[in-house]
Nucleic acid binder design. Structure first.
Lengths: 138, 138
DNA sequence: TGAAAAGCCTGAAGTGGCTTCAGGGTCAAG
DNA sequence: CTTGACCCTGAAGCCACTTCAGGCTTTTCA
């Protein structure tokens, strides 16, 4: 299987696949006589594994750890547990932040319902006011 | 006011201030004979404005737009409204994504309550399974 | 047979929003 | 006169890719 087919069958861009190889997340593939990469079903699985982890918001470094743990013949999965717990905490924190942000943005948007002139626009007035009293620091 | 004092009084790192100047978000300051930057209260305000916008998750490009709109003598604030509406939609979408992610992560985490061996670890088994059936694509 | 088109290759640079680093110059206090 | 705090510049590093420039290989079709 050439790189184009791998890309089509996984929905991952060709350049990204080559990038993962450079980053040692995908094993080095065989080559044809014309120097084209040749992939096996094992590569397909590994690539899907990487993309699934990425869809769970893991960094490539974390994916590397998971691959290592997965390939360890009889290691403990403490690492995996810790990684997931950390990730869950991160996501929870980010959601809380974004909820606050939603409130702030909606409140701000409420200050200018009809397109007015800049000099009387409630949004810009509030942006300036907030900046002056340094709301962001609280 | 020198750059150190500006940094202290706004909580923005010196390097970041210089970066904003390079990016033309802060007006070029005066210089002393010894080539030190000299800031005015106007710079303090502008810097706080930038940071407040950044705390609302705006990109520097968006901040640039807001500064332009703010400084336009009598422009309409349609741009500002559109920008905020877009931002609100973005944040809403991101929150929804993260909620789904929370579910997935918690479910995954539930698969391995006590530190077991990798070869029987429910988490790794599920990561592999999900990758195989390509859950991420749905 | 020959040329175009599709597919692949490499290495380098660009993205955003900074941070870090190397190697200096300036200025006030002791 | 030297120490230390403060400042300067330009370049490189971070992450996870993406884009670009320039060229090779293979297939297709006239």
């Amino acid at each position: 299987m050439q790189i184009g087919e791998l890309a089509r069958s996984t929905g991952v861009k060709i350049e990204t696949i080559r990038y993962y190889e450079r980053e040692q997340l995908l094993p080095v593939p065989q080559r044809t006589d014309g120097n084209y990469r040749l992939y096996s079903p094992r590569h397909v699985e590994q690539l899907r594994f990487i993309r699934y982890c990425r869809s769970l918001d893991m960094s490539l470094e974390e994916v590397r750890l998971l691959i290592e743990a997965r390939d360890a013949p009889a290691g403990s999965c403490l690492t995996v547990n810790a990684l997931l717990d950390e990730k869950i905490a991160e996501v929870d924190a980010r959601v809380n932040e974004l909820h606050k942000l939603q409130d702030q943005l909606r409140q701000l948007r409420g200050l200018c319902q009809q397109p007015d002139e800049v000099k009387t626009c409630g949004i810009l007035m509030e942006l300036n006011r907030s900046a002056r009293i340094d709301k962001a620091q609280i």
